[in-house]
Design a protein around this nucleic acid. Sequence first.
DNA 1: CGTCACGTTTACCTTGACGTCAACCTTGCT
DNA 2: AGCAAGGTTGACGTCAAGGTAAACGTGACG
Lengths: 141, 141
Amino acid sequence: MPCAFDTPPPAKDDLLGIRQMCSQFDVTPRTLRFYEAKELLAPIRRGTARFFTYRDRARLKLVLRSKRFGFSLEDIRQLLDMYDRDPGQQDAQLSRTYALAAGRLAQMERQRDELDEAIAELKDAMAWGATALSDLRNAAA
Amino acid sequence: MPCAFDTPPPAKDDLLGIRQMCSQFDVTPRTLRFYEAKELLAPIRRGTARFFTYRDRARLKLVLRSKRFGFSLEDIRQLLDMYDRDPGQQDAQLSRTYALAAGRLAQMERQRDELDEAIAELKDAMAWGATALSDLRNAAA
DNA sequence: CGTCACGTTTACCTTGACGTCAACCTTGCT
DNA sequence: AGCAAGGTTGACGTCAAGGTAAACGTGACG
């Protein structure tokens, strides 16, 4: 019986099958295949089977993180590609990524402000509704 | 020449053509037809032409507002319908609306918290990136 | 040989809120 | 009569991020 512990951390040069990958990152096979089609991952293909390298794992980690920041898969692909194409221009790349992140951050903050505003407005409307409701009930009494 | 002021406020019993409606609310004709199909609006149909009543305007105002709160058109339709079907049960209806709003508010607040968290995380990552960048530049010098 | 248990590919489906397009009426003006 | 402007319907397209289904492959086990 496989040890009941959480999946043991895979070594740097392990190759993971799709199932292991899925449980490591809590995604479905469909997602991994989809990401491969979108060129976010490039697992080794032995025959038709997939084996995910350390690099794939690092990339997937980045993808999932970036998704939480609200980047689209296409955005993420472009960033990842940038680092792949010419692993030389690190300074330029890092600044570009930084700039992108800054833009996204601004967007997120704008979004949060709008959300705050909407929340305040909704609270207002609800207060109004609560008043109307108690009026109704008083009138009924 | 039509007066250069902003479209003058239409009187309560005016009927607006689709164009006027569009400019009043800054939506496209497609949107109005779509909302009609979704039973959010019910303009008078003279022949095939549409004429939007005061009631339609009030409903549209509500629709657009609710959309900003993140309600789906279907949610909105149900609320609107509730008030149309039996204009008697005001207490029950108002409480139901209130409950829905409360649920939505909780959702929005959760969403804001997640957003805040993501923002903090992104800021963290950016700080890290900034460090790496300045390290790079020092090493290059 | 049968048949699990996984794996794969291809291809279509989903959801929301419209956009886009074609083809057809009306009206009003000339 | 002609014709353009503006209206209408209906049908299909769009976007993201996968879900779902069908049909097939492959290896191990008994």
